[in-house]
Nucleic acid binder design. Sequence first.
DNA 1: GCGACAG
DNA 2: ATCTTGTCGC
Length: 210
Amino acid sequence: MTPEEAVAEQERLRPLVVPRADPGLVVRRVAGLDVSYADDDRLVAAVVVLDAATLETVDEVVVAGRADFPYVPGLFAFRELPSLMTALGELAAPPDLLVCDGQGLAHPRRFGLACHVGVLTDLPSVGVAKTPMGRFTPPGSARGEHSDLVDGGEVVGRALRTREGVKPVFVSVGHRVDLDRACAEVLRLCVTRLPETTRRADSLGRAHLR
DNA sequence: GCGACAG
DNA sequence: ATCTTGTCGC
């Protein structure tokens, strides 16, 4: 797949994104997705499912793969998607929400990793990035405070303070959720700056790299 | 033309 | 992404 084809694929799938939640959406099981890289082209995709109420781990999957697509800003998903999809397919049961390590609608073509994974699985998804793709004014320093993440004149996500006085994370809608709900779910998962889903998937992946 | 650019 | 434990500071 060439970068040109990747862009065309994003534009083809972009209209399928549903930026709102089903009326009765209940999130009981939340999955965290993350990919770790070795020195060569090997990588490990990890998915950890947590009970949203207790934050207890209820399922884990690790998949080894290869980075066959280069890291290109805006096309980041094409690097991690193959292995992540394989891992998701090995879960005992589909989760109610996917928490991705990267952007959702906060993307140059409004189709970041979280949107892509959401559309391919048709599961609700949110993107939680550690650095912004857009501009924002720093939110208040208390946990839960937030401000708009703006790109190209539109609000594409939110800078969310998940912990008192710590750098915010950047939340954007992936698929089948709205921004308010996305932020509420992310905040609920945060004990430290990053969601527990992301932290556990990250450590699981790293452990398997050795 | 120059800079910016998720992980 | 990755290099990386203890340590300084509020």
